[in-house]
Design a protein around this nucleic acid. Structure first.
Lengths: 252, 252
DNA sequence: TTTCATTGGTACAAGGCTATACCTTTGGCT
DNA sequence: AGCCAAAGGTATAGCCTTGTACCAATGAAA
């Protein structure tokens, strides 16, 4: 105990804490499972579609094929993937089981419990990333192919049914993160959104919420394409506040 | 080479790119070197001071002592650390060699080259993190011990000489990132700032810049403690624009 | 001068991860 | 019916990382 080096009174916070965190958040196998889970939870590979071949996945994740296969095996056992052999085979994303008979927050609370302290951190980090991305995006003269991509994602969310809404919403938000121009922002957002989706998937999606959300999406894209950073940031913040309130409400 | 799965025309961007990045950015040894380098570059352990003992470092980084020792050995060979045995021994941070006889941007350009594409990414990511952190901080009712810590960091930058200014500046910014309330924001900022400092350390610090920077610091802290998120955000963005312009200027 | 707690230095065995090569299955195409 | 390309399945040798135990040096305090 007692003071660390400079120690002008221990303000409760260790000054070295920012850098002295675990170098790895788990072994390669576990992190690989999480990464493949991202592909599924973000809807980057829709239900019924198949993941890239093992060799390609392993190379892109910079992981040995053995380790990747271990990860896929776990997800297969969990009922998330179906693995078929032979040409035209591969790992297919299975439809998510709706094991939330009681629409209340039982399952949600269980998952939130697992996150513990990290829940608040996740919501805050998400806000920083998304609000920042929206602003950068609007300040960046988004046009041409990029503009087309945004409009396409927006149209997809507008015409999506209840079943597919979450996926299209994720695609739109991820597009904004990518169009921010920083791959770090996009990468971190993908990780955070994967966690958020894990929670949101426990909550029933109501048409009124969806409509409200959709109006905000429209205004958000308009602000970005119109080159209005301040407005883009404000709309995004309000948009996220809605989701956060929804989650906190179910957890309270 | 042809389309991926869903492929509505290859817009240049692979839709899976956000999740399919390398699981690990290198082996444990390399990442450990980087992490210890952070402690030094961020000035968390000042020149002349010593790092925590090997066993403690290894445990906090969740790395075997063997691996940690390999990392320290490299930093010792690089002339950044001096390792002494026995009680009251340890790894001491050596003063940085000033091997920039020509004050021009030769060394800077060399290091920027190594970053390549990641330079722009780093600056954008930094902006998102810091501007977001400042806003969260101001919206959070920073008071009591936290307020004291901010004021203390501000006072330290104000009274710091040229030699110690960068370190105190880093401490202030890191404090804001930590007071945002999100450990993820703080952790990511520490990593990014470490990279930025590596570049800044090649640039001579001029008194006019320092004064200007200090006025912004004062206003920033005032906005945070005054609970003015919009203003905190605006001041932080302008503050960062200065640094970015300085770097780009030397690189152009 | 002796003691001893603290800190770095070394050795070894076990487990995890990788690279590489080769085998097996599948289903469209000839 | 048979071929064959693409995909999953398996085996092995080697390196990286870890955990554990023990040795060696240092310098303040008794």
């Amino acid at each position: 105990m007692s003071g660390t080096a400079a120690g002008t009174r221990p303000t409760g916070a260790d000054p070295l804490a920012a850098a002295l965190r675990p170098v790895r958040s788990g072994n390669t196998f576990e992190e690989t499972v999480q990464r493949v889970l991202q592909l599924i939870r973000l809807g980057l590979v829709p239900e019924g579609e198949r993941l890239p071949p093992e060799r390609e996945l392993a190379e892109r994740l910079q992981v040995s094929r053995v380790t990747l296969r271990d990860a896929l095996k776990v997800l297969q056992d969990a009922g998330l993937l179906e693995i078929r052999r032979g040409r035209y085979g591969g790992a297919f994303v299975l439809p998510a089981r709706q094991d939330t008979p009681s629409g209340d927050g039982a399952e949600l609370r269980r998952r939130a419990e697992l996150l513990g302290d990290r829940l608040e951190d996740t919501l805050l980090f998400r806000e920083v990333l998304e609000v920042g991305a929206a602003e950068l995006c609007a300040a960046r003269e988004t046009a041409g192919e990029e503009e087309e991509r945004l409009r396409e994602c927006l149209a997809a969310t507008a015409s999506a049914g209840l079943a597919d809404y979450r996926r299209q919403d994720t695609r739109l938000h991820l597009a904004i993160a990518e169009l921010s121009g920083s791959v770090s922002v996009a990468a971190q957002y993908a990780a955070v959104r994967s966690t958020v989706n894990e929670l949101l998937d426990c909550i029933p999606l109501l048409p009124p919420n969806l409509e409200h959300s959709e109006r905000q999406h429209t205004e958000l894209v308009a602000a970005i394409l119109g080159g209005e950073p301040e407005r883009a940031r404000a709309v995004m913040r309000q948009h996220l506040a809605g989701t956060a309130a929804l989650l906190r409400g179910f957890l309270a």
